[in-house]
Design a protein around this nucleic acid. Structure first.
Length: 574
DNA sequence: GCCGTTTTCGGCCCGACTGTTTTCAGTCG
């Protein structure tokens, strides 16, 4: 099942939204929001906690602890149900449209009865918003653009959402008696940054029983199709999941086939044809004799085609077949190659966990080094000051080595302002072990300005990593427009690494740009950008993005040994 | 509704930007 922490975090966030949308106390709404983040980011399992223990979670007091407790015991929170009754769910969903908040959403509902994104789109096109106070031509345009952005992402979900759904389903199916093997395949196995549907592959002694069990999982909302070898359902969250049961001796061929991509499979089947073979999900066959020559193991299938096994993250027909034929497939970076994390936050700014908690969790992951990079003063809301930064540095120095010998680095995440300048002057930056610099505003500057801005950051000798370079949020915010090739050239020349931010809604730099930058000799840092202990585990998504960008461990600075990393961080600094 | 205390009430991240308005509300980070 989904972590209780996440379930409760979602409910508390919904409660906060409903307070805001029904015109409740804004401060109260904010408290629920803060509590939602605290619970979602809490390292312990709340399902095992009583009301008293729950209150020890930051921002959880008597009232919220009681609500959580009620949910854990009964599966519902009655006050939440009451609020839900006051406003249609579609109205709350309107606020996912950028630039549309609770105030406008509820106004649209009360004035025009708009209770869904579809009805909003219709109303705008019908000109019904013209007479509404506070809605001008530009607002309509922005709303339509926001809706378009969401349509473009379609019904797809981000990699993190897809992965947790898939892992939950696979784990449940493996518990069904008679289920022998069960894995997810498709775009999820290729770790694409968004997932349209989930493909699950299984072998079972009694396929029909497994199919039946699948239709009855708690995650299953509706059954779309129910057959002998394939069953499709839609989860309660609206995600389509296809389960295919295959014969055990077809496992490898089926896994290859259902992992895709379509373009990659076309290429492998072409290769088979040239060798007078036929490749299908049932196996690789000799056309003349009809004999099956490979099928149980994926590597055998590739092997009989004259190819090495190709990692799923490379299977996009973007040159991997040619590279494989030449024996030049890269040894792509693996999560186990990473020796540290270079972009993380604590509760000194907008993180949830203390420096000690973050460091302890990092050490548990086996890291040799770990950088704390809290926000700098220019993000006013974080209330960072010189004094706080220096006090944190002292604390970092004191704790250095205290967690299994792990090296603690004191860094900061600077804000790149519209001109390309950052929060602190060079002499103050010189005191940090590491400076990450990122865009946090002015995302819609023209290409030339954004490019100049990023170039200026690269030229700053103290800045060694550009954080989440495109600033995109998948399905919510477009990447900034920059002349990336110029930026990449500057990064390579100045020794500035580009980050691959591992948050599943970011995955930024995106894989396509990673590959382009890699070609220009740029180095990378795969970072969690963790704001809480559980976020440290997002690293897998960042690594997958690095793989999809064809990176080797040598191109990733946090896969380097400490001494090499430190030399890189010190290079060219005055 | 939570927190911290100058402990039972007052403050709560705060400034910028946008689009609308004509002095400001809503949204965002």
């Amino acid at each position: 099942m989904e972590r209780s922490n996440d379930q409760v975090a979602n409910l508390l966030q919904e409660y906060a939204d409903l307070i805001a949308i029904t015109g409740g106390d804004a401060f109260k709404a904010r408290v629920y929001e803060k509590a939602a983040r605290s619970v979602g980011g809490y390292a312990g399992d709340i399902a095992k906690m009583d009301a008293g223990e729950l209150r020890r979670i930051p921002n959880v007091g008597t009232s919220i602890a009681a609500k959580i407790d009620e949910f854990l015991r009964t599966g519902a929170i009655h006050q939440l149900e009451e609020l839900r009754g006051k406003i249609p769910a579609g109205v709350r969903r309107l606020t996912v449209i950028p630039s549309l908040g609770p105030k406008k959403a509820v106004m649209l509902y009360h004035e025009l009865g708009i209770d869904s994104i579809e009805s909003l789109e219709g109303a705008i096109r019908a000109g019904l918003l013209h007479d509404l106070h506070g809605f001008g031509a530009k607002t309509e345009e922005n709303l339509l653009h926001g809706i378009e952005l969401m349509h473009k992402a379609g019904e797809r979900v981000d990699l993190g959402v897809g992965m947790s759904a898939a892992e939950e389903i696979v784990a449940a199916l493996l518990q069904v008696p008679g289920c022998e093997r069960c894995v997810y395949a498709g775009s999820l196995r290729r770790m694409k940054d968004t997932i349209g549907d989930i493909d699950v592959l299984a072998t079972a002694r009694e396929p029909a029983a497994l199919m039946d069990a699948f239709t009855r999982l708690p995650t299953t909302g509706e059954v779309i199709a129910h057959g002998d070898t394939k069953t499709s359902v839609r989860t309660v969250a609206g995600l389509q999941v296809d389960l295919r049961v295959v014969p055990a001796d077809s496992w490898g061929a089926a896994l290859q086939y259902f992992t895709g991509s379509k373009a990659h499979n076309i290429r492998t089947r072409e290769i088979a044809v040239h060798k007078k073979l036929k490749l299908s999900e049932y196996g690789l066959f000799d056309v003349t004799t009809g004999e099956k020559i490979a099928s149980t193991d994926e590597a055998d299938v590739y092997g009989m085609l004259g190819l090495p096994w190709i990692p799923p993250t490379l299977r996009e027909d973007s040159g991997e077949i040619e590279a494989a034929l030449r024996g030049e497939l890269p040894r792509i970076v693996a999560e186990t190659d990473l020796r540290g994390d270079l972009h993380t936050h604590t509760n000194l700014t907008d993180g949830l966990a203390s420096l000690e908690e973050m460091a302890a969790a990092a050490a548990e992951r086996g890291y040799a080094y770990f950088a704390i990079t809290d926000h700098a003063p220019e993000l006013y809301m974080q209330r960072m000051t010189d004094e706080k930064a220096l006090a944190q540095r002292e604390q970092v120095r004191k704790l250095d080595g205290a967690y299994g010998g792990m090296r603690l680095l004191h860094g900061t995440e600077l804000n790149i302002d519209p001109e390309g300048d950052v929060d602190w002057p060079p002499e103050f930056l010189a005191g940090f072990d590491l400076c990450v610099a990122s865009l946090h505003s002015h995302f819609t500057q023209p290409r030339e300005e954004t490019t100049r801005r990023l170039l200026r950051a690269c030229e700053n000798p103290h800045i060694k990593i550009i954080g989440h370079p495109t600033a995109r949020v998948i399905g919510r915010r477009e990447p900034v427009d920059a002349d990336w090739d110029t930026v990449f050239t500057a990064c390579a020349r100045t020794g500035t690494a580009l980050e691959i931010d591992a948050f599943p809604e970011r995955l930024d730099l995106p894989a396509g740009l990673v590959r382009r930058a890699s070609g220009k000799g740029v180095l990378f840092a795969v970072d969690s950008d963790a704001h809480a202990v559980p976020h440290l585990a997002n690293m897998r998504y960042g690594v997958a993005t690095a793989q999809r960008g064809w990176l080797t461990a040598d191109q990733v600075i946090n896969a380097w040994p400490l001494d090499r990393l430190l030399r890189f961080l010190q290079a060219d600094r005055p």
